[in-house]
Design a protein around this nucleic acid. Sequence first.
DNA 1: CTGCCGATTTAC
DNA 2: TAAATCGGCAGA
Length: 198
Amino acid sequence: MDKLPRSFYLQDTLTVARDLIGTYFVVQGPKGEIVGRITETEAYIGKVDKACHAYGGKVTPRTKILYGSPGFAYVYFIYGMYHCINVVTEPEGCAACVLIRGIDIVEGKDIASYQRYNCSFKDLSPNKIKNFTNGPGKLCMALQITKEQNGEDLLGNNLYITKNIKGVENIKKPINTSKRIGIDYAEEAKDFLWRYFI
DNA sequence: CTGCCGATTTAC
DNA sequence: TAAATCGGCAGA
C-alpha cells in the first residue's frame, strides 16, 4: 500500500488529474473503511481558468485552501444539497486542484450503500448500482464526505490515495479526455480538455 | 442585508 | 425538462 506522497500532488495539475485515474481513494469513516478506484477527474487551475473558484487570484474564505500546500482536500457545498471533493495541487501560492468525479467502490460497498441509499448493497437495483458513485456529488454521499473533511491532509490516516491496494491488480486502461462538465458559463475555458476518464 | 447563482442529482 | 434547496459571494 503506497500512499501517494506530497511530491505527487506538487506536480502540474493536468499530470495529477491524469495520473489519479486508476488509483485508490481510501476513506476511514466512522463505520469503517471504504475504498474506491478513481475513474474520472477534472483539473481546475485558478490562474488561467474561468471555471475555477479561485480564477484570477480570487481569495475568499472558501477558496483559501486552494492557495495552500498540495495534498490537502478542498470540499465545497453546491446546489444547496451536495458536496464535491478536490485535491489541492501545485506549490503553495498556486490555486489549483483536481475534482474527483467518479469512482468504483472496491471495498466497503455495504457501508457506502447505506450512506447513499440507506439499504444494503445487495438490495440495489441495477440502475442504482450504475449510478452508485459515478458523479462528484454521488461519491461524496456514498463516502459521507462533507465540509468536515475540508482542509484535511491527504497524507493523514483518515483520507488518502494509494497507487495500489493489496490483492487488487491496478489494470491500466486507455484514458480518455473531454471538455469538463457543467461549466458552460466559463467562456473559452469551457472548451479545455481537462476531464480525464476511463 | 438582499438577491442571484451554482464544478449536481433526481424525478417526471 | 424542471424542481430541489441553501451557502457563497458581490453589491448596495
